[in-house]
């Protein structure tokens, strides 16, 4: 039955490609989360009315974020080929996609972090200061926990965007479901392969959204 519907699908290859997509998405999401947090916190603290107002570092961070957020991903991959080669020694395979995935999405998430932090009640930060908290304590015990639901829903959106990016990275040879759909499906006119790859990507996206929603619900005590 399944073989009749999808005569050209090599299930072993399909499974391998799924794992590659999951791997790229997961690793890129973790690094995007960490780098995005640093960028977002920097933007928030050094921005106008921040605890560490500093025009120059704010301008530099904002410029970095804006530039890398604006470059279309497919171009960013090509621009980063030399860096990828230097870091990994190769531009093929799932790892080769990671630098571009992270550099492309961390600034995007950084902006989301900044927005999430700006939503925190200023009074709560003032209260922490009035208790004698250091900036580090405020970051760890006020800013992050108080914005956690927004940080999680932000990384959910970003992780889903990353699934899409991995498909694009697939085109230049990074592997994964995008790569498979393009090479085996499109170029060899095997529509059933493209279909199955698409369904698997959809399942991954829905799963990420589902996990994200649960985590948001669990952390939001408002």
């Amino acid at each position: 039955m399944i073989e009749q519907l999808f005569p050209n699908v090599d299930w072993e290859k399909m499974w391998e490609a799924t794992l590659e997509t999951l791997y790229m998405t997961a690793v890129a999401t973790v690094f995007t989360f960490l780098i995005g947090l640093v960028l977002g916190i920097l933007l928030f603290l050094t921005g106008p009315k921040g605890i560490y107002q500093n025009r120059i570092s704010n301008l530099i961070t904002a410029a970095f974020v804006n530039i890398f957020r604006s470059i279309p991903f497919i171009i960013l991959i090509i621009l980063l080929i030399p860096l990828t080669k230097f870091l990994l020694g190769s531009i093929r395979g799932p790892n080769a996609a990671l630098p571009a995935l992270i550099i492309g999405s961390a600034p995007f998430y950084g902006r989301m972090v900044q927005i999430a932090l700006a939503e925190i009640d200023k009074g709560v930060i003032e209260a922490a200061r009035s208790m004698g908290a250091t900036t580090w304590t405020i970051i760890r015990k006020v800013l992050l926990p108080e914005s956690m639901p927004a940080l999680i829903s932000g990384i959910t959106v970003t992780a889903i965007a990353l699934v899409g990016y991995t498909a694009m990275a697939g085109i230049i040879g990074a592997g994964g479901l995008g790569n498979l759909a393009y090479l085996d499906g499109f170029q060899r006119s095997r529509t059933d392969v493209t279909m199955v790859a698409t369904i698997l990507i959809l399942i991954i996206v829905f799963a990420i959204q589902w996990i994200g929603d649960i985590l948001v619900k669990r952390t939001d005590k408002r």
Partner: peptide
């Protein structure tokens, strides 16, 4: 210090 809007951490 205590505040008009209490300023408790909701988390």
């Amino acid at each position: 210090m205590i505040f008009q809007h209490f300023n408790l951490l909701w988390s």
